[in-house]
Simulated assay, not measured.
Amino acid sequence: MARTESNSLVAKRPFYKTPMAVAKACFIGTLLTDVTYWRSAEMMWADFSAWLLFAGLVVGVLAALAALVDLFTGRLSGAARSAWPSLLGNLVVLVIAFFNALVHSRDAWTSVMPTGLTLSVAAVIVLLLVCLLGWSSDHNRVEVVE
């Protein structure tokens, strides 16, 4: 029997998705620690929020740089249309998180209430919308190379 080789090539996972998942976890953690601070007024939770924001921003910027690498190396070529809403949504989350970090740099109660908590909620809502857009589009495509 002759051996046949497949001409299909599975699309590779873009580089930016892994660090952005870590940044998203940090931003969701920020919301949780902001809510905990709001309920308890324990300064430790506001400090946790500030650190989570900082970590999320650093990793999010690395994810944005990885997205540029993906864009310029052609890793997004097969799923370019479905990747743009996700990329833009993640960029919006990073901008919200940046302003949230500025708010969290204040002292005590004003670092979280009410603006910090509101920005944390807004960031998580945008993250949820990005996830819904991601689920509605097909990211697991198989490209056929002939």
Results as ranks from 00 to 15, higher is better:
residue 16 Y to M: 14
residue 17 K to W: 11
residue 17 K to I: 14
residue 17 K to G: 12
residue 18 T to C: 14
residue 18 T to K: 15
residue 18 T to S: 15
residue 19 P to F: 02
residue 19 P to R: 04
residue 19 P to C: 03
residue 19 P to A: 02
residue 20 M to Y: 05
residue 20 M to D: 03
residue 21 A to H: 09
residue 21 A to R: 08
residue 21 A to K: 08
residue 21 A to D: 09
residue 24 K to T: 13
residue 25 A to D: 11
residue 25 A to F: 13
residue 26 C to T: 04
residue 29 G to N: 08
residue 30 T to K: 12
residue 30 T to H: 13
residue 30 T to S: 14
residue 32 L to T: 10
residue 32 L to Q: 07
residue 33 T to I: 05
residue 33 T to H: 03
residue 33 T to D: 02
residue 34 D to I: 09
residue 34 D to P: 09
residue 34 D to C: 13
residue 34 D to L: 08
residue 35 V to F: 02
residue 35 V to R: 01
residue 36 T to G: 05
residue 36 T to C: 06
residue 37 Y to K: 04
residue 37 Y to A: 04
residue 37 Y to T: 00
residue 39 R to E: 00
residue 39 R to S: 01
residue 40 S to T: 08
residue 41 A to M: 10
residue 41 A to N: 10
residue 41 A to P: 06
residue 42 E to K: 11
residue 42 E to A: 12
residue 44 M to I: 12
residue 44 M to P: 08
residue 45 W to H: 09
residue 45 W to G: 06
residue 46 A to H: 00
residue 47 D to T: 15
residue 47 D to E: 15
residue 47 D to H: 15
residue 47 D to S: 15
residue 48 F to Q: 08
residue 48 F to S: 08
residue 49 S to N: 06
residue 49 S to K: 04
residue 49 S to D: 04
residue 50 A to Y: 07
residue 51 W to K: 04
residue 51 W to I: 02
residue 51 W to L: 03
residue 52 L to V: 05
residue 54 F to P: 02
residue 54 F to E: 04
residue 55 A to S: 09
residue 56 G to E: 10
residue 57 L to T: 07
residue 58 V to G: 11
residue 58 V to A: 13
residue 59 V to T: 14
residue 59 V to A: 13
residue 60 G to L: 03
residue 61 V to K: 06
residue 61 V to D: 04
residue 61 V to M: 09
residue 62 L to G: 05
residue 63 A to R: 12
residue 65 L to V: 14
residue 67 A to N: 06
residue 67 A to Y: 04
residue 68 L to F: 14
residue 68 L to E: 14
residue 69 V to D: 06
residue 69 V to W: 07
residue 69 V to P: 03
residue 70 D to V: 11
residue 71 L to W: 14
residue 72 F to E: 07
residue 73 T to Y: 10
residue 73 T to G: 12
residue 73 T to D: 13
residue 73 T to W: 09
residue 73 T to E: 12
residue 75 R to M: 12
residue 75 R to T: 11
residue 75 R to H: 13
residue 75 R to K: 14
residue 76 L to F: 05
residue 77 S to K: 15
residue 80 A to G: 04
residue 80 A to H: 02
residue 80 A to C: 03
residue 82 S to C: 00
residue 82 S to R: 03
residue 83 A to W: 01
residue 83 A to Q: 05
residue 84 W to P: 07
residue 84 W to Q: 12
residue 85 P to D: 01
residue 85 P to Q: 01
residue 87 L to P: 00
residue 88 L to Q: 01
residue 89 G to Q: 06
residue 89 G to N: 06
residue 90 N to M: 11
residue 90 N to Q: 12
residue 91 L to M: 12
residue 93 V to C: 11
residue 93 V to R: 07
residue 94 L to A: 05
residue 95 V to P: 00
residue 95 V to C: 01
residue 96 I to P: 01
residue 96 I to C: 01
residue 96 I to W: 00
residue 99 F to H: 04
residue 100 N to A: 15
residue 103 V to I: 09
residue 103 V to N: 03
